[in-house]
Amino acid sequence: MLKKHPLAGFSLFGIILFILSNRVDELRVFQGATVAIYVIAIASIILLTGYSGQVSLGQGALLAIGGYAAALARNHWGAPVWLTFCIAVLAAALGGYLLGIAAARLSGPYLAGTTLALAIGLPSIANQFSIFGGEQGLLFDIGAPPASLGENFSQYKWYFWIAALAALIAIYWLRNVMNSRYGRSWKAVRGNDVAAELAGINVGRNKVLAFTISAGLAGLAGALLAMTISTVSPGAFPLALSFSLATGAVLSGVTTLGGVMIGAVTLVAIPEIVDTVVSRFESSESVANNLPGLLVSTLLILTVLFVPNGPVEQLRTRREHRAKK
């Protein structure tokens, strides 16, 4: 059904999520919201790296722009919730556009280095201006769920609905963009920029566009992240966040959007699985604390070694290979 009616497919998936959200406990709902946010953030990296061939290690900084923009819009202008998310997307996209102009002139490790510097530097700007609330950050309160949803409707379910809906819309829209002329142009640029230019594609403009859209998505993820923790602070967007998002993108497979859930679910599930396992065996604290990092790193290495383009792409290639025989 998805093949012919993608919109219906996405709607169906949305309905499944909706039903699930009413049947599982609150912790799962909270984790579901986190997965949805990671889906958007990882998709923004896949778009940038997998489709347009630009490496960003600083996605966390763009998330921070989105988070702060949303919180400021809410706190200072009392913007309605939906508008705060739109402002977050626009603010981050603007940041991404400016970064993209610089990035289009850089490539490979130079670009990675620039974005990395941004991830380290940008969140601490918040400490320089009192409007950002310093190290303790700002509160970002989207308010209680509408009363019409009933008294027992929890805050986290409300967050989950918002995050899941945003993720579904973002991925559906992104899928269409990637199938459009722009998506094909990006792939051409990634494959060989000289050849792309000869084919009449404006390489620079395409790179900047990819950066802008990717940043907009990251901004949305940042605002949603701020929503789930009800605050924004520099500490919420550490370098570790940028790295784990990049890891999630590699686990998902950077060249296809299809596996985007894999990375997001892995990032949320691994610490929890480790916790459960470790609590069964009375192992030492330092093992328990460092195991999640070790597991994710191992998965990353295994992915790069055996399924460099991600599990979904791998399956597809294998099937095509078999079909040829």
Partner: peptide, 26 residues
């Protein structure tokens, strides 16, 4: 190519979501 991805997206996503959310009910 994208067509197959679409189905994969739905399938993997659904399976993982169900697995993740029902893994341990309390």
């Amino acid at each position: 190519m994208i067509r197959i991805n679409r189905r994969k997206l739905a399938l993997t996503s659904a399976v993982l979501a169900v697995a993740a959310m029902t893994a341990s009910s309390l």
